[in-house]
Amino acid sequence: MLKDNHGRNINYLRLAVTDRCNLRCFYCMPEDGLNWLSRTELMTYEEMLRSCSLLVKMGIEKIRITGGEPFVRKDIMQLLTSISQLQGLKELSLTTNGVLTAPYVSELKKIGVRSVNLSLDTLDANRFFTITRRDEFANVMAALDALLKHNIEVKINAVVMDGKNTQDIIPLVEMTKDLPVSVRFIEEMPFNGDGHLYTGLQWDYVRILEEIKTKYPQVQKITDPAYSTAYNYQIPGHKGSIGIIAAYSRTFCGTCNRIRITPQGELKTCLYDDGVLNIKNLMRSGTADNELQGILLNAFGNRPKDGWEAEQLRVQHPGIHESMATIGG
Rank of each mutant, 00 (worst) to 15 (best):
S182E: 03
I235H: 03
P225E: 00
S228R: 03
S228F: 01
P236F: 15
T229K: 02
P190G: 06
T223Y: 00
G193S: 09
P180Q: 02
S249I: 08
G193C: 10
Y233Q: 00
G237S: 09
N281H: 14
L282T: 03
D194P: 13
G265T: 04
L267K: 02
N281F: 12
T255L: 05
T262K: 01
S285V: 14
E211C: 13
N290H: 13
K213H: 11
G275N: 01
L282R: 11
K280T: 01
S249T: 15
I279L: 06
P190V: 11
L292V: 15
R284F: 10
E187W: 05
G286L: 10
P217M: 10
T229M: 02
R184K: 10
T251E: 02
T223E: 00
V219D: 09
H196Y: 08
Q234N: 03
N192F: 08
P190W: 04
I279F: 13
T223G: 07
M283D: 04
R258P: 00
E211V: 15
A226I: 06
D204T: 07
K268H: 09
I259M: 00
L197P: 14
C256T: 00
L277K: 01
S182R: 13
K268T: 10
K213S: 11
N290M: 12
T269R: 00
K239D: 11
